[in-house]
Design a binder for these strands. Structure first.
Length: 789
RNA sequence: GGGCCCAUGGUCUAGUGGCUAUGACGUCGCCUUUACACGGCGAAUAUCCCCGGUUCGAGUCCGGGUGGGCCCACCA
């Protein structure tokens, strides 16, 4: 047995162990045909370094992976980075001081791919440092050929099944990014603004007042609406209103979506200010008056404001209204506004041609899919359900950006859609044509849009299972993600899997919470309250930050508390020292089972078995915090504080009982290390290598077998041991109250004599010496007889 | 406006109907005993947010309220 150094140095040991795992391929996906446990993991955006939120959620995923690996599952645990879409585009622009528009899309993609190749290893070094046992070496990038191929195949499959369509309809639009965006990319913020009361008139010149925060949309007004029950405006039904500034005539109609108590109860409908406008425009078949261009400026159709930005136009029109005495009132308000989550720009609605995945007409199937998945914790299912029930738009998957996965699509001169065939993917329509059209290139126009980044990350299961190479799709075991992306990642992945394979993508979905700052607030760079996990690892250890990550109930957010990391670090020390003590004696252990077990050995084995049972069940239900609590409590409270004290005397002074004590020590320490192993993989591996690997003939604790409860333990022993522990507690208290050293011996008379709790006359040393005890308990006193020699 | 989650010693937290409510950090006192002072032992600190109900019994279940967080809707 290896002699252990006095202290465990995580800073040198952890990287060495990580090297060891790599070399021994400990977390490689095993060949053979055993049960597979597959984990669908989120590809993080390749952006600088791992943040604490990553550390928190990936650590939790890793607990699960390691647990099942030790339970002899073949764990498929892929890993990739998401290098697609706007965030990456921005990052590369900034990093290399270039502009995406100066490159051809293909060149820019090549540029990103090159950057990814360079930066991915370093980025993933952070995951390695945390001890994540995913397939880091085989990491994919969502912009690599395989992922592009998978995404394009996904599109073609939906196209064949008529589940995707191109239509020109008002779509939510970001004027800053100059692209369509999806409902899921909205963010709601409170903005200060002005509520303006503006004078319109009816055909007879009588005043009609409306209230608006968006007066610049007045030239886009195409109708005026009131609630059908609103008595004030019944006479206007079928009439026309005259719009100020432009003077054009618009129909007045009743619509039950108008609130009588909001504003003046009379509402202008414009193309388009918001979703309500879009809906009324559809319902009442109104005119289209587009006044904004794609970059958020007033178009030439509105001569007096042409070229002005939206906000500038607002100022100007307010000035004009005031001058013409058409502005009745203006008050300062704050109101909620939908903005693009990436750039905080207010969302507009533009009628543009886009590709949509038809989710609205399949709501029922998608709701049912939610039922077919096990949600952990259960209530997270409701979030999915409500999102699907409240969907208002089909999923717009096209983006008017140069960078991303291209659609495998061309258009003929008469506008018909031409798609690539599946065997020529990935394909870039800007530089290639389908084989069938070779020689007739000039008859085709390439689709210039690229896919939404979610259109590609929604196929992570298909990427992991290599569906694009013709391998069959089999349901994955588990999806692990945080709750903020249920409406995007979880939802879109379910959509794709149901549409492609008519099956839900995973058996289980585990939703984790967020890491928060110590006060329970969201961490953000702008607030300056971010905690860098790399610093925590350097100051303490990966194991101790993992210990912190294991301390919350599933799905709950967890404030970062340094003290929890400190507690983790203390646990490392304790494990180290307790093991060191055991190893001193386990040298003598020959691996045999003793004929009979001593009372206290049976007691600790009973406690140990209970712990294993609880921890195993907890891990199986993804409740790693309960598993951690169980093993923690057993290790500190039972094993170290009591059992090791009880057993010391026998180990040091009494050869007779070695067999029983050594067997117990070996069994319990090994099993305890194993239960700790998924959470604290480094220290447990180090100790396993030092004391057990050879005996068990196993290369790593992480592929060793998960411990089982010891069957043959009697309940009496458990009770007797508890009584003894309690007795020891009383002695400790007795001495503490008298400020005595625990070392001070009591009168020798008490050592071998029967003692009762009433007398309070047991000393520490004598308790430790007791090794063959008969316990009988009565109502008033507990008598312990020792049969010491 | 709709929904979901949460509310436990100073702080964070366990607790999914049953004896004097878990643990950590912090506080105070004591102890260098041959695994560990990066330790051990002991102590103090909780009207388990409030009101009602179900039950032999409620921190735990139900109803209502208050407070916090999140999601959705709300841009007139």
């Amino acid at each position: 047995m290896t002699e252990l150094p006095k202290r465990y140095d995580a800073q040198t040991e952890e990287p060495a162990l990580q090297e060891f795992w790599k070399e021994k391929q400990v977390s490689a996906f095993p060949e053979g045909d055993g049960d597979v446990f597959s984990i669908d993991t989120p590809p993080p955006t390749l952006s600088g370094r791992m943040h604490l939120g990553h550390a928190f959620s990936y650590a939790q995923g890793d607990f699960i992976a390691r647990f099942w690996r030790m339970n002899q599952k073949r764990v498929l645990y892929p890993f990739g980075t998401d290098d697609n879409g706007l965030p990456t585009e921005r990052m590369i622009e900034k990093q290399q001081n270039i502009r995406v528009k100066d490159f051809s899309p293909a060149d820019f993609r090549a540029l990103v791919l090159k950057a990814v190749k360079q930066q991915q290893p370093e980025f993933m070094g952070d995951w390695e440092r945390l001890g994540i046992s995913a397939d880091l070496g085989g990491a994919y990038s969502t912009i690599d050929e395989h992922c592009q191929k998978t995404s394009q195949l996904s599109f073609l499959d939906l196209f064949e099944k008529n589940l995707v369509e191109r239509k020109e309809t008002p779509v939510s639009w970001c004027p800053r990014c100059q692209t369509a965006i999806a409902q899921a990319e909205f963010e709601n913020v409170e903005l200060s603004s002005h509520m303006n009361t503006v004078r319109f008139s009816d055909e007879d010149g009588k005043e009609l007042l409306i209230m608006t925060t968006r007066p610049e949309l007045i030239p886009a007004c195409v109708g005026m609406a009131f609630h059908p029950d609103d008595k004030r405006y019944q006479h206007l039904l079928g009439q026309f209103a005259i719009v100020p500034i432009t003077g054009h005539k618009v129909p007045v109609f009743a619509d039950s979506s108008v609130a009588q108590d909001k504003g003046t109860g009379l509402m202008m409908v414009c193309t388009f200010g918001d979703k309500e406008d879009v809906e009324k425009w559809h319902r009442h078949n109104l005119d289209l008056r587009v006044i904004f261009t794609r970059d958020g400026r007033v178009s030439d159709d509105v001569a007096q404001y042409a070229g002005l930005k939206i906000k500038e136009a607002r100022k100007q029109i307010i000035a004009d209204l005031t001058e013409q005495d058409l502005l009745v009132k203006q008050e300062q308000i704050t109101h909620p506004v939908n903005v693009h989550e990436r750039c905080s720009t207010e969302i507009e609605y533009l009628k543009t041609p886009q590709w949509y995945v038809k989710v609205l007409e399949h709501k029922e199937r998608l709701l049912q899919a939610g039922e077919e998945i096990n949600w952990y914790p259960q209530f997270m299912h409701k979030r999915y359900q409500h999102w699907v029930e409240n969907l208002g738009w089909d999923w717009c998957v096209s983006r008017q950006r140069p960078y991303g996965v291209p659609f495998p699509v061309w258009y003929t001169k008469d506008g018909a859609v031409v798609v690539a065939s599946k065997d020529e993917l990935p394909i870039d329509p800007l530089t290639q044509v389908p084989a069938a059209w070779k020689g007739r290139e000039d008859e085709l126009t390439a689709e210039t849009d690229v896919m939404d980044t979610w259109a590609t990350s929604s196929v992570t299961p298909q990427i992991a299972l290599d569906w694009a190479s013709g391998k069959p799709f089999t349901q994955m075991t588990l999806r692990l993600q945080a709750h903020d992306i249920i409406r995007t990642w979880a939802f879109y992945t379910i959509v794709k899997s149901v549409f492609h394979h008519d099956t839900v993508p995973w058996r289980d979905i585990v939703i984790s919470g967020h890491a928060l700052d110590p006060k329970g607030k969201k961490m953000s760079k702008s607030k300056g309250n971010v905690v860098d996990p790399n610093e925590v690892i350097s100051k303490y250890s990966a194991d101790s930050i993992r210990y912190w990550a294991a301390s919350t109930k599933l799905g709950e957010d967890l404030p970062y508390q340094e003290k929890d990391v400190v507690t983790g670090q203390k646990t490392l020390n304790k494990l180290w020292n307790a093991s060191k003590f055991c190893f001193m004696h386990l040298d003598r252990y020959d691996g045999s089972e003793p004929k009979s077990l001593e009372l206290m050995d049976r007691w600790v084995l009973a406690k140990y078995s209970e712990m294993v049972l609880v921890a195993t069940e907890a891990f199986e239900q993804y409740e790693y915090s309960r598993a951690k609590a169980a093993v923690d409590q057993f290790f500190w409270g039972t094993f170290c504080d009591y059992y090791l004290e009880f057993v010391k005397d026998r180990l040091y002074n009494d050869e007779r009982d070695d067999a029983s004590a050594l067997y117990t020590l070996h069994t319990v320490l090994l099993g305890t290390l194993k239960v700790f192993a998924p959470i604290m993989p480094h220290i447990t591996e180090k100790l396993y290598q030092a004391g057990f690997a050879e005996k068990e003939d196993c290369v790593s604790i992480h592929v060793s077998t998960w411990p089982k409860p010891i069957e043959s333990v009697d309940a009496d022993a458990a009770v007797a041991g508890d009584v003894l522990s309690e007795l020891l507690g009383m002695v400790r208290k007795f001495k503490s109250e008298r400020e005595l050293s625990l070392k001070i011996e009591f009168p020798s008379a008490s050592i071998n004599a029967p003692v009762s709790i009433d007398e309070g006359l047991v000393d520490f040393k004598s308790t430790a010496r007791i090794h063959d005890v008969k316990v009988s308990s009565g109502d008033t006193n507990i008598t312990i007889e020792t049969t010491d020699e």
